[in-house]
Simulated assay, not measured.
Amino acid sequence: MSVASTSSTSTPTHPARGRLGHRLSGAAVALGCVLFLGGFVWAALVYRPYTVPTDSMRPAIAPGAKVLARKVSGSEVHRGDVVVFKDPLWGDLPEVKRVIGVGGDTVACCDTQGRMTVDGKPVSESYLGGGAASVSRFSTTVPHGGLFLLGDNRPVSQDSRVHLDDAEHGSVPASDVRGRVEATAWPLGQAGLASRTSAFDRLPGGGAAGGGPLPWLAAMVVAGAVLILGGAAYEPAVKLLRRR
C-alpha cells in the first residue's frame, strides 16, 4: 500500500535579495548621517551667523538680515569683500561694511563722473544700485595693516568717512575683522550666496575673494537628508509592496 504525498505551493521569497536590500538601506542611512552631521559640524567650525542691525548695506543686505560670515583673518581680506568687524573706536557691536581700500591704497572721492577712486583708478561700484559713491569729498591713504570700510548705502552709512580725523585716518586694523560675509540666511526671500563684485579686479592685487565651501556644505546636508529618508523608507516600502 502506497501513500500519496502531497505538495503545497508558496510564493517564492528571495532571502538573499532581502538581506542585500536591508544592508544597502542601512548603509544609505549611515552615509546620510555622516554627510548630514558632517556638513553641520564643518559649517559650525568655518562660519558664524551675524545680524545686520542697520540699513547701511542696502541694497545688498537689508536691515535685520542674518548673514553667514566665514571666519578669516585680516590678511585674507580683499578689496570688495563685505566683512564683519568690531573696533572699539566704532562701537561695542560688530558691524558689517565693504572693504574699499587696503594698506597703502589712496582712496578718494570723487572723480569727474562721481566715482570712487583707488590709487587714482576709478571704481565702478555696481552694488550701490545707482546711488552716489559719496555725499562728501575726501582723500586718504590707508595705513599698512589697515582697511578702509564703507557701507553700500552711502548717504546714511556711518563708516570710515566719519573717522577720517582719527589717528588711523578712518581705517580699522585688519585684525579687527571677524569674518567675510558669504551668504544671507534670513529672511528666506533674500536667502542665497553673496554676489562677488568685480569692481576692483583691475587694481594691483586684484579684487574680492572667491567663495568659500558653503555650497559644498549645503550639498552635503541635502544629500545626507535624502539618503537618510530614502534608506529609512526602503523596508516599509518593500513590505507594503509585498502585501499588495
Rank of each mutant, 00 (worst) to 15 (best):
G74H: 00
P94D: 00
S134Y: 00
T51Y: 08
F36M: 09
G146S: 06
G80E: 04
S75T: 03
G129I: 06
A43I: 07
S10Y: 13
V34E: 05
D152F: 02
H144Y: 08
G101K: 03
E168P: 08
V181K: 02
D119N: 15
D111A: 11
V142R: 02
K66S: 13
K66R: 15
A30F: 10
V67I: 13
L31Q: 07
G129P: 04
V29M: 14
P173F: 01
A62G: 15
P53C: 11
R244S: 12
A30S: 11
E95K: 14
V156T: 15
G130T: 14
R137W: 02
L150V: 05
K239M: 10
T13E: 15
V123A: 08
P122W: 02
C110H: 00
T197C: 10
F36V: 08
S2A: 10
G170A: 01
V177H: 00
V96D: 05
A223D: 00
H163T: 12
R242V: 08
P213R: 05
C109V: 01
G210E: 07
R58Q: 15
P143N: 07
T51V: 13
A209C: 08
A167N: 09
T197A: 09
A209E: 04
A208V: 05
R70H: 09
T51A: 13
G114H: 06
L68K: 11
P122F: 01
P12R: 15
H169T: 02
A133D: 15
G192K: 09
V221C: 03
W90T: 15
S160K: 03
P236R: 05
V238P: 10
G131W: 04
A16T: 13
G120S: 05
V177P: 01
A132C: 10
P122G: 06
E95R: 15
D92Q: 13
A183W: 06
C33F: 12
V77C: 01
S136M: 01
L24I: 15
S8Q: 09
V118G: 07
M57Y: 09
A208S: 13
S25V: 11
H22S: 14
V34H: 06
